[in-house]
């Protein structure tokens, strides 16, 4: 709905913001409590359920309109209602003191400024695949972790097995079937058959060009091996993802920066989970694919990965 021409035009009268609702509707930090006070007056009222949706409000948190639809027409109605209500608000409602802040704790606080961030897109593939849904996520690596993509001495022709840390992070937490909704990760034991390799194809000065290829395998009978956390399901969900990986990259050895890091993982999915939108008749095997590429250098690229809380990296501080 947000790609609709009329909706895009209408958003120009607003400051637009996005956020993850799970933390905001449950958290006890100032930002979450501020959100709850506003959203409890919205389309879902003050009940115990979700607060997903669209809200129009003033800077001081006065709710002007709210709804939860995927229809562009319904979204436009909410924006129009909110804009009309805005015209009746006071300067006090619209303006925050210059020193106003909301103390907050977020996963993003852990991410180093020079981190290597990939954005992923995934979609169903194959003869019967519907492209009306796709999903995206971010992959985080520190500069030190990202060194595992290449050999220590990246001379032309050298082949390298990508580090276990990189391979497992991608296979466990990112090659998962969340095309239609959030899903469950794999444990390290579930992805033991995964291997990624790089080959240095050229070196011009400090810039190393390389290819990426490999095979990934994630498979579980549904046994939960990732400990006690928010993701632990109540039921076993057998599932699997197998892919073939191909990609390319360029790395500046002088700055340590990746100039390009792109790869595709194309393969099959089987099974389902409690939240990923696969019904009993849609458990595969069916085609699925991912594209990973460097995220643009902007604030919105620093949004945390879905499974950041179980990445297991010692540099990630739990904000809760």
């Amino acid at each position: 709905m947000w790609s609709d021409e009329k909706v895009i035009e209408a958003t120009k009268d607003f400051v637009c913001a996005l956020d993850e609702v799970w933390r905001l509707q449950r958290g006890k930090d100032a930002e979450s409590l501020h959100f709850q006070a506003m959203a409890d007056k919205g389309h879902y009222g003050g009940g115990g359920g979700t607060r997903q949706g669209i809200y129009v409000l003033t800077a001081d948190g006065t709710l002007l309109a709210a709804s939860n639809h995927l229809s562009a027409a319904k979204a436009l109605e909410t924006l129009t209602t909110g804009l009309e209500a805005w015209k009746k608000t006071t300067p006090t409602q619209r303006t925050l003191p210059s020193d106003w802040t909301l103390p907050r704790k977020r996963w993003e606080d852990s991410l180093p400024p020079d981190a290597v961030i990939l954005i992923s897109y995934n979609a169903d593939l194959g003869a019967g695949a519907q492209r009306e849904r796709l999903n995206r996520d971010h992959v985080w690596f520190t500069v030190e972790e990202a060194r595992g993509w290449l050999p220590a001495e990246p001379t032309e022709g050298r082949k390298h097995v990508v580090s276990k840390l990189i391979t497992e992070r991608i296979a466990q937490f990112h090659l998962v079937d969340n095309v239609r909704g959030q899903t469950l990760p794999f444990a390290a034991q579930d992805v033991a058959g995964t291997v990624l390799r790089t080959t240095v194809t050229a070196r011009e000065g400090n810039v190393v060009s390389f290819t990426i290829e490999g095979e990934t395998q994630g498979e579980t009978d549904g046994s939960w091996l990732l400990g006690e956390n928010d993701w632990k399901p109540k039921t076993k969900y057998p599932r699997g993802v197998t892919t073939t990986v191909n990609g390319v990259g360029r790395h500046d050895t002088a700055t340590g920066r990746f100039l390009q890091l792109e790869f595709a993982a194309i393969g099959e999915r089987t099974g389902r989970t409690n939240l990923n939108g696969r019904k009993e008749g849609d458990v595969g095997p069916e085609g699925i694919g991912w594209i990973f590429e460097l995220a643009p250098d902007r604030a919105s690229s620093r949004i945390a990965p879905a499974f950041v809380d179980i990445y297991g990296a010692d540099w990630i501080v739990d904000p809760r």
């Binding site: 947000w2 958003t11 009268d13 607003f14 400051v15 637009c16 913001a17 996005l18 956020d19 993850e20 609702v21 799970w22 905001l24 959100f35 959203a39 979700t50 607060r51 997903q52 949706g53 669209i54 809200y55 129009v56 409000l57 003033t58 800077a59 002007l64 924006l79 909110g82 804009l83 805005w86 959030q182 949004i303 945390a304 879905a306």
Partner: peptide, 11 residues
């Protein structure tokens, strides 16, 4: 300007 906020399960 008014704030248009879109929140979802998952950012």
């Amino acid at each position: 300007k008014p704030l248009l906020l879109w929140v979802m399960n998952g950012h």
